[in-house]
Nucleic acid binder design. Structure first.
Length: 423
DNA sequence: TCTGGGGTCCTAGGACCC
DNA sequence: TCTGGGGTCCTAGGACCC
């Protein structure tokens, strides 16, 4: 049976979430900024029309922001995650199988659906449903492979006449669309690969689809080879209904202002590892390897640069914040070099083990701390319930390196105090 | 002054084994 | 003096994604 995939992608997701609760901004240009209000990470339609690029640093856009009256928001992940849940649960109701691919995208497996109903009509109805129930506009692309579904979605966004839904099941429609799309827009083709492809005379998605598969494998990799097959309508990438268990957990941040003091750095790293340990326990895993990194800013070319990381092994897998803090502190003692202006740091947890099924160490005298599990459970419970906030002294009490979030919108959907009022 | 954060997968090359 | 070939495992780094 021919496979049928649909990709549902929310339009300008973060910007749409912000506009939802601010009807006064309906036709105004809106951008959402990254952590520290550093870069533009989402743009409303009006902003895209102005030609403002994604990922650009905000300070370089100061003129544009003023001239066009662009409204800026700091990223409000609590709001976006909640709106995402609402969209995803509607999709889940409608489709036989669903893969949540990112906060604003989901693949649906619609194989066999065309036996009972028209695919295009089915997806148009789904789009309307999401719109009426959540207010978030989406576009949908339908195709026999995920990579083609991505391109169909791209076309649905780009061409107004499609009404936001494109059915790319027919091979002749695939050829026509692929000829119009630059190769760099293909899922899995990034900056480096597209540059190399251009050099080989491959400019459009159709060129890539028709390229010699052996040459692609030799010159690039099995990954791009798979992309070529997918462009030819052969489904190689399956729907992943169950998210795979994580291999690593990263907590890292750029600092709102540079750090030159070791104590401040230690506090920051302890905060990150605490957060990472919370995520670890949520996933019911223990980690045996911890990677700590600190670095200066690569953008300040005139400044002295230093970047280093250290992998450290624990004697046994752990999810105990105290043990992880200890190893992070020891790592910092090795890594730290005074005299630099540090811009970013982070902690990575690796080499996971199942927290429920522990492997004892026969010859080692190292033993996990007694009562560790109970203590961590109590800690997590207190911090979750908002009864209060318990934290380790190592984090410090004056977080001067905290994030800059000057344009934060209220938690409209996740905090009673912030519920929008209708008068 | 100010340039995100969190992930995955693949490959090449070195270490090591027989 | 002559110094193989095949395999595995690990790691660092590159490339990609949203």
């Amino acid at each position: 049976m021919t496979r049928v995939f649909a990709l549902v992608d929310c339009n300008n997701f973060y910007a749409s979430c912000e506009k939802l609760f601010r009807p006064d901004l309906k036709h105004r240009p809106v951008v959402v900024l990254s952590n520290n209000d550093g870069c533009v990470v989402a743009r409303s339609q009006e902003v895209k029309a102005l030609g403002i690029q994604m990922g650009g640093p905000v300070f370089k856009l100061a003129d544009d922001i003023k001239r066009h009256g662009i409204v800026c928001f700091s990223s409000n992940y609590a709001l976006y995650a909640d709106m995402s849940d609402r969209v995803m649960s509607l999709l889940e109701e409608a489709a036989p199988a669903l893969e949540i691919y990112s906060i604003d995208e989901a693949f649906l497996d619609l194989t066999g659906v065309d036996n009972c109903t028209n695919l295009l009509a089915f997806c148009q109805a789904l789009k309307r449903k999401v719109d009426t129930h959540t207010g978030i506009p989406v576009c949908i692309g339908i195709a026999p492979s995920k990579t083609l579904a991505k391109l169909a979605n791209h076309a649905a966004k780009q061409y107004k006449a499609t009404g936001g839904v494109v059915d790319l099941m027919a091979p002749e429609r695939q050829v026509r669309l692929l000829a119009l799309i630059e190769v760099a827009k293909v899922w899995g083709v990034g900056r480096r690969i597209s540059k190399k492809l251009q050099g080989l005379g491959i400019h459009t998605a159709l060129d890539l689809a028709q390229a010699d598969i052996n040459m692609i494998r030799e010159q690039f990799s099995v990954v791009l080879e798979r992309t070529v097959r997918e462009l030819n309508g052969i489904a190689c990438i399956e729907l992943e209904q169950v998210p795979p268990t994580k291999q690593q957990i990263i907590c890292s941040r750029s600092f709102a202002s540079r750090i030159t003091d070791k104590t401040k750095m230690r506090e920051a790293l302890c905060k990150y590892v605490t957060r990472a340990a919370e995520k670890l326990r949520q996933q019911k895993r223990k980690a045996k390897v911890v990677n700590v990194f600190i670095r200066t800013s690569a953008f300040s070319a005139d400044e002295a640069q230093y970047s280093n990381s250290l992998l450290a092994d624990l004697p046994y897998p752990s999810d105990d914040t105290r043990e992880l803090i200890a190893i992070v502190e020891a790592s910092l003692d090795t890594l730290w070099k005074a005299g630099y202006r540090y811009a970013k740091a982070g902690v990575m947890l690796l080499d996971f083990y199942d927290a429920e099924h522990e492997q004892g160490e026969l010859f080692s005298s190292d033993r996990p701390q007694i009562q560790s599990k109970k203590l961590m459970q109590v800690l997590d419970k207190i911090n979750q319930k908002g009864i209060g906030h318990v934290y380790f002294a190592a984090q410090g009490t004056a977080p001067v390196w905290l994030m800059k979030r000057e344009h934060l919108s209220p938690a409209y959907t996740t905090n009673w105090k912030d519920l929008p009022l209708v008068r």
